[in-house]
Simulated scan of single mutants.
Amino acid sequence: MQASKLIKVAIAGTGNVSQYLVEELVSYGHEVVVLSRRSNTQEKRCESRQTDYSVNSLLTVLEDCDALVSTVADYQNLDIPLQIHLTMLEACKQSRRCKTFVPSEWTSNVEDYPEQPMFFANANEALHQKLKESTDIRSTIVCNSWFADYIYPAQQRYLPDIGAPWPMDHASKTFTIYGPGTQLIDIVSVRDVAKAVAVLLATTEPWDPYTYLSGQQLSWNDLFTIISKRDPEWTSRTKPLADTINQIVANESPDSVLTAQFEVLSYSGASMFPKDKVQRHRAKYFPNLRFRNVEELLDAAAAARPGAIV
């Protein structure tokens, strides 16, 4: 039987992923504090602490914490989150108590595809190397590929609309098929990821450097079939791989390039997880946790009261 224990967890950042983590970690029974640069985060479910993310500041706010989970991200200036995460890691190394660290990646298969997504490659390499060298810190990179919650309308999720590269435009009910649409991707809800993190933090089992979480593996074509079957008003359009490559080469804006580089993920295979690793982690860490597929998630959204976060 897997041993577990409740701990005190600091969550860095107050964005949308953080909201799911707070809810599920508190529900699991962990004590949670939220770290933010602001003095008042409006977080009512747990304690809030202010930090400037320097080592000294982090050492103070983590003094009575057992683990640090980060949701800090900035796609426009990758040097900022990299430096913050290196500082977080150093604070954990110097801390007397906080020796568990989950950095903010919530990402694709960066173990086998460390160069994907391309705009993250250098930052990932630097952080992952430091994590490997920090043998006194328990850490893991959470690989969850695409968050499935984008299948919901905006009022049923904390995640904001991101437009492309997620293929669903809810306003026009248009689904973009990338290339042939046969590329396999993994998909999982943020809430199921948050529940998994709560379980992972409680386990006394040794962690792997990368943890794979998936609710379902399917193609873009499969996903469109599921969506359009439930609502025939959805239509599809095709975006060829050549258009994606030309978008990168044209380099018209940082957002345009970032979007196209995200689209490359499914072509490269980085959005598809090895099934043996997904199953091994389920058996090792999450034998009692249900990772829902797309149909189950849509059923949950349909059954929820209007406007409720699923």
Rank of each mutant, 00 (worst) to 15 (best):
S36I: 11
W234A: 12
E296R: 06
T182R: 00
I227M: 15
S236T: 10
A300R: 06
L201D: 09
R138W: 02
E90T: 15
Y53P: 11
P232V: 13
V61N: 08
A121N: 00
L89K: 07
Q156N: 14
V294P: 05
D231V: 13
D79M: 04
T174L: 14
L289T: 04
S18W: 07
D255S: 15
G269P: 00
H170D: 06
C92E: 05
R230Q: 10
F147Y: 14
Q183W: 01
P209L: 07
T60Y: 15
S36W: 15
L78P: 00
A73H: 12
A154N: 13
D222Y: 12
W106E: 08
K284G: 02
C65H: 09
S27Q: 14
L82V: 01
T182W: 01
T203K: 06
D255G: 08
L241V: 04
S95E: 09
T225V: 05
P232Q: 10
G15W: 06
L298Q: 08
S54F: 10
L59S: 04
P103A: 13
P81V: 13
F175I: 08
L127K: 01
S236K: 09
A242R: 14
N16F: 15
D74W: 09
C65P: 03
S189V: 01
P117Y: 09
Q247L: 10
K173T: 05
T235I: 11
M88L: 11
D186W: 04
W146C: 06
K229N: 13
E47S: 07
K173S: 12
A194K: 02
Q76E: 15
F175H: 06
S266P: 00
I185C: 06
S139M: 03
T140L: 03
S139T: 12
D161V: 01
A283P: 02
A302Y: 09
V55C: 15
T41K: 07
E233H: 13
P160L: 07
N293E: 06
V188T: 03
I185T: 04
I162M: 05
S219N: 05
L131E: 03
A121Q: 08
R230V: 02
Q156C: 05
Y75N: 13
D64T: 14
I11G: 12
H128G: 00
A260G: 06
R305V: 05
A171G: 08
D222M: 06
I7L: 14
A148W: 05
V188E: 03
P232S: 12
I227G: 08
